[in-house]
Design a protein around this nucleic acid. Structure first.
Lengths: 249, 249
DNA sequence: CCATGGCTTCTTGCATACATGAAATCTATG
DNA sequence: CATAGATTTCATGTATGCAAGAAGCCATGG
């Protein structure tokens, strides 16, 4: 009854590596927001015809990453600030649901993963290793959503995160003063509530955590960052290697 | 900044009427769960080539309504009971979020729509007109989600409802004894909380309401229905005209 | 009678050609 | 020099042809 969830990418019938490769090329490649993406260029680049490229682009449009203007062309979409806020509101609700569902499940494998994650996060937090911590944050949130054992929730979450992940608007807020340790403490509180099987507490602790990190991500960043690597990249340029975490902490 | 929301169907670049027509044909037409849907049949039926049909089918797969097995064919998907439960869990969370967001907005146009809906619902409930009430329930929930003024939430909700709407598993639970008036009362409570701008109360009142109607929809239906029209249709046959509400009450 | 092997058929997946329409450019005129 | 109009170009939208693979079927052997 419980199907495997090992494939995070929806089975679209499209050869998955192609979709993934086009995604990277489109978002992290030489195409910036507003740029036209000619189908034929991608087709030649990947050695296929326009047909599968069109399918991939339609999928990307469905994910909200590009906009296809009929008879005109496909353009990289620039999410508005309003959309970012909307996505964060949904993120808060969905992760709250995930925490609630996981709390009701009892001791499952994902709970142990979270506990190990906390240990590693404590180390990274005490060392101030924000790069390492950012990755652990990433794992924490995805483990939680996976631990909810609700495939539709997982797919919905994945869908929304795809819209947030590849845009430079959301940067690793973990580098902001104080946020790192606060985030770590909030993670602890969530896991504690889950261990107590207190679904309501788990949900609201998680929601508060997501809201806090979302606000940190959305707040203007006037003050200097704590790390030099991956400093705030608000210019229209886009770095080929994205160091920033795809979501807040 | 605030874009219009008048188009509930995502702009996919596909000629929208075609997508809609294929959806009906596929789900309410002669194709039942598990049936193969040959592209060429639809193509000839609608007087187009296979290419736009393929795009439509891919979109329907993305919505979860069909399954494309590579090199084999496209089949109408039968959602499992587990999936239904998962979708209801998400529905509860999303509609709770919608109520919460709407409560924070103050007096907006959609609130007046809800109030008019309640008046009409009271009449339908007192008359025991479950057909009329079912339509009002439908309008109530969609108005609430629209009133949240969060486009991403709206799109996500639409996406999930598409997966629930056209399957005969979810029937109008409004015809069950007691559920009709209970539902009406719950709607009143939600609107009251919104008018009081009590976001938390609005959210949980709505969540409780969704949970109650979801459980009613999922519960086994041993006892006779109160209406003769659109009686529980659990056979593999599917009526050409679907009378059942696409969601609970 | 049952099982197994090959064959036929059917369906999709991809490539390509052509039509359509929008945008940009070039030109001619006020 | 600016502007309006026509033309040219370019990218998409659609149709169609062909190949590959999977499922079903039939025949044959045990």
């Amino acid at each position: 009854m419980q199907e495997a969830m090992e494939n995070p990418v929806q089975n679209t019938g499209i050869e998955v590596p192609l979709l993934e490769k086009v995604r990277r090329q489109v978002i992290n490649g030489r195409y910036g927001p507003g740029d036209l993406i000619p189908e034929i260029v991608l087709a030649e680049e990947f050695g296929v015809s326009r047909t599968p490229i069109r399918e991939v682009l339609k999928q990307l449009q469905n994910e909200g990453l590009v906009e296809i203007r009929p008879r005109v062309g496909t353009f990289v979409r620039e999410p508005t600030r309003r959309e970012i806020v909307e996505l964060f509101e949904l993120k808060e609700s969905l992760e709250g649901l995930a925490a609630s569902l996981m709390a009701r499940r009892g001791r499952v494998r994902e709970l142990e993963t979270l506990e190990r994650n906390l240990e590693a996060s404590d180390v990274a937090a005490s060392e101030g290793n924000s790069q390492s911590y950012a990755e652990l944050v990433h794992e924490f949130h995805w483990t939680l959503v996976r631990g909810a054992d609700n495939r539709k929730l997982y797919e919905t979450y994945e869908r929304l995160m795809n819209q947030l992940a590849y845009h430079r608007i959301v940067v690793d807020t973990v580098t902001r003063p104080g946020r790192l340790k606060a985030s770590d403490n909030e993670h602890h509180a969530v896991v504690e509530a889950i261990k107590r099987k207190d679904a309501l507490d788990a949900e609201f602790t998680m929601r508060n955590h997501v809201r806090a990190s979302s606000q940190a991500a959305l707040a203007p960043t006037d003050y200097p960052r704590l790390t030099e690597a991956g400093a705030l990249d608000n210019t229209e340029e886009h770095s080929p290697t994205v160091r920033s975490s795809p979501h807040g902490c």
